[in-house]
Design a binder for these strands. Structure first.
Lengths: 351, 351
DNA sequence: TTGTAGGCGTTATCAT
DNA sequence: ATGATAACGCCTACAA
């Protein structure tokens, strides 16, 4: 292995000078700089990351606590966080969590010097990991939000805005009975996973403010729940004319199942996805109207916020809500006329 | 920060002895071991990863060259590789690739001591990165395969077997005109991405051996290509009674589009997915019959193979093909009778 | 502008 | 069974 020592020897300078040009730490005369650069190239020198980390007490690595869930968005979080880190000459290490290492091991990444800071995702409203990191004084940033946020760096999807916009759009089209479909995490380690909770809260608030009638359906990730969802919705409230789905597979299941029950999309019922992946919705018939989850933006912003904190010292926290860009499909239309509804009901009564 | 020095002082031993008990390097008397363990706990000592890496010349980190593509499988590769690494007390760092750092930067992860070895995915049939890693003597393992494989550690999906099995199953059901749908990477950096190439090769071979008639459709990731796919297939060969799709979105598009063209699944046409994610297929109507891509197994095996190589020295290479577990849906049935086909043709002729 | 030298916290060799 | 001590390769005051 080629060391700075070797480079220094070949360029007839001290090891310190080599360090200066490698890191740009101090000005070095044009002459010697060139000699050193030349020596570096001839020898194929690369500075040792571990030695550097030890001496500088900075690993230039951030850790991403890796998700339990298998979600479309997760890939883009990770990819964009890694890309953003790389651009700033940081590395991104993945730390998978499981029941065995849930909380205590997270701060240890920083305590062992493996990582300078931690990126947390799948944040719950009350998240003990956050408390732990704070108490351990480990720098961190959230992709997501806890209930209490003072002084915390976070980046999250603006679920509130998306939900509200979706409702308003549907209401403007005459819909008064709207169902919300969210994922059910109640029997998982992510029981308090914040997105569905927040969206449900906003949904209830906005619906009642607007004096609209709405029902919330929690769908677990098992297939049969999704298969029966259409019947559940129509059974619970036959007047439902629009569905907001924060659950891509469920949305797909609905698009497949509703027409089979005589409900044409969007003539009889409208569907809109929020915080969705676009790839699936785009190939449905009709193409799904969605508010896309801005996964890539999130990962990047979070990584940048964390690195800024690591390098910048104690500025004000980054607290960003990223909106979901709308994708116009053809799954949303005006609420069906009363005549159409009655015709349908009659047809259903006398088959 | 608490160092070994501090622990040694408190336990009245030398720093070396502390190291012995922390790493289990050498036997230590019950007594002093306990004193040391106690001191460690009281002080909250954690050994510094960077110092350890420097002194031992091992970072206990492996790098995963992170994919360009957004694929369902990728999440499980990554998650399982990270989990397998963690179990062996390794870390997994992600290294995103892009045109700017395509080849040269990969070996540098090892050369800078950041990682002890590299995990490569999205492998192409001829992959310069592999040559480069070999020449740089950087330990690596592949998730995927190159053409030339002597001495290379790799783990891949057994595409050949899945393809052959799918064809045989369809042939046994009387299908003689089978279409293959694969992803089109020809205009991307992954032009030589090996899975579709291999599958196409096997498809052509097996089909001609069995004297069956087949057409290959390459579908790019843009939506319009998927939307028109059903028409493409029926237009090219109206006799097609079965489709093998190695492309989840395309499969979905087909399941949505074919019935609209009067082709019932599976009465008129069968669809089977290979190397698929199961989540989407399961909620289709009818549920898709698939051979699931064993993503989690792959990531884990590859990480294990690499770590074994790093620690075990020079044993024979790990070379594993993992089969795709079949998932029975309801999208495959017997080839339609001639009578049914003729009835259909007549109906189409005189609308 | 360049050099000297003392860490950084471990590992690992060689004594004892 | 334990201890001393020289690396490991680099950073960074401090000096020159």
């Amino acid at each position: 292995m080629v060391t700075m020592q070797d480079v220094a020897a070949r360029a007839n300078v001290s090891i310190a000078t080599v360090s200066f040009v490698v890191n740009g730490t101090k000005p070095v005369s044009q002459q010697t700089r060139e000699r050193i650069t030349k020596a570096i190239e001839e020898l194929g020198y690369r500075r040792n990351a571990m030695a550097r980390a030890l001496a500088s007490r900075k690993s230039r690595t951030i850790a991403l606590i890796y998700p339990l869930l298998e979600h479309h968005n997760h890939h883009s979080f990770v990819a964009s966080a890694a890309a953003a880190a790389e651009e700033r000459e940081y590395h991104l290490v993945l730390w998978p969590i499981h029941s065995g290492n849930a909380t205590a091991e997270i701060a240890s990444l920083v305590q062992t010097g493996m990582a300078d800071g931690v990126l947390l995702m799948e944040v719950q409203l009350e998240d003990e990991r956050v408390n732990y990191l704070q108490q351990a004084k480990a720098p961190f940033a959230l992709i997501g939000r806890t209930r209490e946020l003072t002084g915390i760096d976070y980046v999250d999807i603006d679920f509130e805005h998306s939900t509200e916009t979706a409702i308003e759009r549907l209401a403007a089209l005459g819909h008064t009975n709207i169902a919300l479909v969210i994922e059910d995490f109640s029997r998982t380690p992510l029981a308090q996973y914040s997105p569905p909770v927040r969206v449900e809260e906003v949904f209830r608030t906005v619906m009642s403010t607007k004096r609209l009638s709405g029902t919330v359906f929690r769908v677990s990730h098992d297939t049969s729940a999704m298969m029966s969802l259409a019947d559940d919705i129509l059974g619970t409230d036959p007047e439902t004319t629009a569905i907001i789905a924060m659950h891509d597979e469920a949305a797909l299941a609905l698009v497949m199942a509703l027409p089979e029950r005589g409900m044409q999309i969007p003539q009889d019922i409208s569907i809109v996805g929020i915080a969705s992946a676009t790839t699936i919705g785009a190939v449905m018939h009709p193409p799904l109207t969605t508010y896309e989850a801005p996964g890539a933006a999130l990962g990047r912003l979070a990584a940048e916020a964390l690195i800024a904190r690591l390098e910048g010292g104690g500025g004000p926290p980054t607290q960003v809500l990223v909106p979901c860009p709308p994708h116009l499909g053809a799954s949303v239309g005006p609420a069906p006329s009363q005549a159409r509804i009655e015709a349908k009901a009659e047809a259903a009564d006398s088959p």
